[in-house]
């Protein structure tokens, strides 16, 4: 497994329990990338489009963004839309990680250019498995686009 410490994972999640469980799942699956948390859509956008993020010595753009849909202030689909509209973040891998299994969310999410759509299972064992596969695919197998697209 290639070390991937240099780039962070952006977790957009308003629920602290989910945040903790996700972190636990990362840990259990040996995913060591730094995790940046945004508690709502506005924070996520602020982080992504902040000068410091992209500046020398900053965190840089995340290697993967895990995006919840139901978020305070700015919802997940709006965040995705803005990411895809901006040339800097246009190719950023974004996985929708949400409770919703609504058809319309799926369709809209993919329509806006989500790379993946994963429904959070209630069963933590299954959740762990999902996170494991996620990490394996996006952090290990997938060749990410250049950090400065």
């Amino acid at each position: 497994m290639r070390p991937a410490t240099e780039r962070c994972i952006l977790l957009v999640e308003d629920n602290p329990d989910d945040e903790m469980l996700t972190r636990r799942a990362f840990a259990k699956n040996n995913i060591t990338n730094p995790v940046v948390i945004a508690h709502d859509g506005a924070e996520a956008l602020e982080y992504l489009f902040d000068e410091k993020t992209n500046a020398e010595g900053g965190q840089g753009l995340p290697i993967l963004t895990l995006l919840d849909l139901k978020l305070p202030k700015v919802d997940g689909l709006t965040v995705l839309r803005q990411l895809r509209a901006d040339p800097r973040t246009r190719l950023l891998p974004v996985v929708i990680l949400t409770s919703s299994a609504e058809q319309q969310d799926l369709v809209e999410g993919y329509g806006l250019g989500a790379n993946s759509y994963i429904r959070k299972p209630v069963d933590f064992i299954q959740f762990m498995e999902a996170v494991r596969q996620l990490g394996l695919y996006w952090l290990v197998l997938n060749s990410a686009p250049p950090a400065t697209a």
Partner: peptide
Amino acid sequence: FSYSVSHDLRAPLRSIDGFSQA
């Protein structure tokens, strides 16, 4: 309502399950 059920009702369940497992 359905949306929030799907989202918000499941989230605590996930916590219950997840932290039980933890």
